[in-house]
Amino acid sequence: MSTVLVLTPVIISSWPAITAAVAAAAASLGIMVKESVQESVQNAQVNQNVENSVEVELSQSEVLAQTMVTNQEIVLTKGTIELRVKRDERGRCLVCAKGVGHSKAELKMAADEFSQKLTQCFVYDKIMHELKTKEFQVVNEEVMKDDSIRIHVRRWMD
C-alpha cells in the first residue's frame, strides 16, 4: 500500500458538462427532464402562492459563464416536485426545488439528494475520462449498496 487520499470535489466546468451530469443524475434517480434547456423563464406557475421552494447550492462549484446564456436552466420533475438546476449570480451551481403540498424539509431533501447525485455523476465522468486518457485499464467497477461507486484501475509502468 502506498497512499490513501480523501478528496473533496470542486466542480469547475462549462454548462454543457454540467448538463451532461444533470442528465446522468436524473436518469439514475428516475427523474424526468421536463425541459432540456430553458433559456428564458417566462411561464409563471399557476399555483405559486401555495408553493414552497428551497434552494441548495453546490458548495464547491463554478460554472464557466462564457458558455452559458443568462437565465439558462434545466427543469426536471420528480412526481409533483419541480427541480431547477441553474447558475447563480456568483457563478455557482444551484439546485432549486419547489412544489405544491410539500414541506420545506421535503423539498430540501429532494434538492440535497439531487445535488449529491449530480456531484457524484460529474466526478465519475471526469475521473473515467481522465483514466482512459492516461491508458488505465478498468479492472472492476460496481455500485455498492450505499450508492457509492467503486472503480478499480490498473496500468503497467516500465
Binding site: Q116, Q120, S148
Partner: peptide, 12 residues
C-alpha cells in the same frame, strides 16, 4: 477509487 453518495472521493 470510491466515489461516495455525497460525491466525496476516496483514492487508494
Amino acid at each position: 477509487i470510491e466515489i461516495t453518495k455525497k460525491g466525496e472521493v476516496k483514492v487508494h
